[in-house]
Design a protein around this nucleic acid. Structure first.
Lengths: 142, 142
DNA sequence: ATGTGTGCAAAAGCTTTGCATGGAC
DNA sequence: GTCCATGCAAAGCTTTTGCACACAT
């Protein structure tokens, strides 16, 4: 189920968590930045403009909670911090990362799904998730 | 060029770096653990058994240098530390990561190479490297 | 009323850096 | 002899944790 401001309360309640102003604001920001890959620090800086009193720890705790609830997904680029993006319920997508300007292009492809099935058979491995990143140069940077 | 204890000196010299006992020991350890995915801390602990006086900073600096020289490759699993593996000059390989026991199975496939070409055309993106990880459950953990 | 959630500050990792000494060339 | 490399310790970053107070249910 894709998270919205309207169903956040029920998503939280389903796991015995409470709806708080901070959680609402953070989800709002993630929705506003759908498609972005924000770090905790970046979320914190945006939240502060709406709720200057919020603590950084709360942002970390909320992002962790949202991950656990499947509202967002944690990404692993080769950087020194973790980034998060909204889980949209749409098809899985993957990333093309430009080594020069850092631009991230998203893509998805059914070829990968077939490849995955083949892989499962060959290695007796049950795939639950995949993360694929291609690094190189985007159109502008080549 | 695949790094060995014999050609390390020329690899370093080619970029105006010196051959030191510490750099030799660290390469030795990476070679002994070919196929492993070691963190800086783990390399440090192994090195200390041969050279108790070595500093952790030296290990970090050496791993960074080896990355720059293409001797090793930095990996990004979803953990809190960076891991490194020897660059073998063989075909690129990718990882199946077991979510339960943490086992890492390596694979490579020519299907991916084709897929990559297609992707380059479609997104006007020049791919220089790819990292692919599938998460799930290995044979033992299913 | 109860127990979860928050803010603050301190602590805990991992990694980097400054500086004086030591070693490769 | 020169300059790079090292060891040590301190600092830097991101992230986590402990605790008292506040708030959602």
């Amino acid at each position: 189920m894709e998270a919205t401001l309207d169903n956040l309360k029920s998503i939280l309640a389903a796991s015995n968590y409470k709806l708080t102003a901070q959680r609402k604001i953070i989800l709002q920001i993630l929705i506003n930045n759908k498609g972005e890959h924000l770090s905790a620090e970046e979320v914190y800086n945006i939240v502060k403009t709406e709720d200057p009193g919020i603590g950084l720890a709360t942002v970390y705790r909320t992002l962790e909670l949202f991950c656990e609830l499947g509202i967002i997904q944690q990404l692993t680029f080769d950087e020194n911090c973790r980034r998060y993006e909204l889980e949209t319920g749409e098809e899985h997508h993957h990333h093309l990362v430009c080594s020069k300007c850092g631009k991230v292009i998203e893509f998805n492809d059914e070829v990968l799904e077939e490849f995955e099935s083949e892989l499962e058979k060959r290695h007796s491995f049950k795939v639950t998730e995949h993360k694929i990143k291609f690094y190189g140069y985007c159109e502008d940077c080549q």
